[in-house]
Design a protein around this nucleic acid. Structure first.
Ligand SMILES: [Mn+2]
Ligand SMILES: [Mn+2]
Ligand SMILES: [Zn+2]
Ligand SMILES: [Zn+2]
Lengths: 138, 138
DNA sequence: TCACTAAATGCGAAAGATTCTCATTCTTCT
DNA sequence: AGAAGAATGAGAATCTTTCGCATTTAGTGA
């Protein structure tokens, strides 16, 4: 019963929230815009408004259930929180997204924040390029 | 005569372009949104439309004269190209922006792209935190 | 210097993403 | 089951950026 999970976070276990959460947990695609989540739920026969999708994703973000990314291209992209921090490398041709962790980069970032006198709260690293399969095509 | 600079880039030396370019070159603030550039020019008595500011900044970006960043908060931020690649660390309280270069991070990024099979085209690294002066206030 | 042509500009309309408003519908608690 | 407050859905509103088009301007050659 995952409705308890939501309650622990101070969120009422409403149908839209449960549907969105379980959709994110089971989707094969990890990184999705609010619009994509909305459309996927529509096609699955769920009747949840776009505004609700935005609201719920924002609440989930505040609760630490999902994280939000600002990839190039304007709109926010969400993914269910895996617990492990990671950064992203994206294909500018096909939109493919891969994840990576690099402890050297992480510690360098902490060092830079320190040197500049900042108390670091967050960071975002996006590498853009052409993935191997798109390289073959061109 | 900087109008020659624009012509070399294949851009007609129009009044709006010259005004925007010299404003960017002389502004004490390095990182500005299109709206901010537009308003600053208005206050300086220049009569340039917002659409033109957007168009010109986009053209300057294509010509390599300015670079565009997507800091958190939705809108694009522009800065005049300094020639030296650098990344950014931003204060989430006051909006202050500092720049840095870290060759270790740069080479690690190239390595990651390589390992993942990507032909890297670009990358963006943003560190967010609270700057020293904002830390004192709270 | 003058005139021509293509390119650039300004304005308002339009588009895309996200948030807001508010009447209606649920959840939770008793 | 009933009450009170929170959440939802639909569309309006907002914000940023781009478009469309009539008008102006820069660049070129006579
Ligand atoms: Mn991810
Ligand atoms: Mn910069
Ligand atoms: Zn690709
Ligand atoms: Zn600050």
């Amino acid at each position: 019963m995952e409705s308890e999970d939501l309650k622990k976070l101070g969120l009422k276990a409403t149908a839209p929230r449960m549907k969105i959460l379980s959709f994110l947990e089971t989707s094969k695609v990890r990184h999705m815009s609010a619009e994509e989540v909305y459309k996927a739920l529509l096609e699955a026969g769920e009747d949840i408004g776009l505004a609700t999708v935005y609201r719920v994703l924002t609440q989930f973000e505040a609760a630490g259930l999902v994280s939000r990314h600002h990839f190039e291209g304007g709109n926010s992209v969400f993914e269910i929180e895996s617990g492990k921090h990671h950064d992203h490398i994206l294909c500018v041709k096909c939109g493919r997204v891969d994840e990576f962790v690099d402890e050297t980069i992480e510690s360098r970032q902490r060092k830079i924040a320190d040197e500049k006198g900042y108390a670091m709260t967050d960071h975002a690293l996006y590498i853009y390029g052409i993935c191997s399969s798109c390289q073959k095509k061109s």
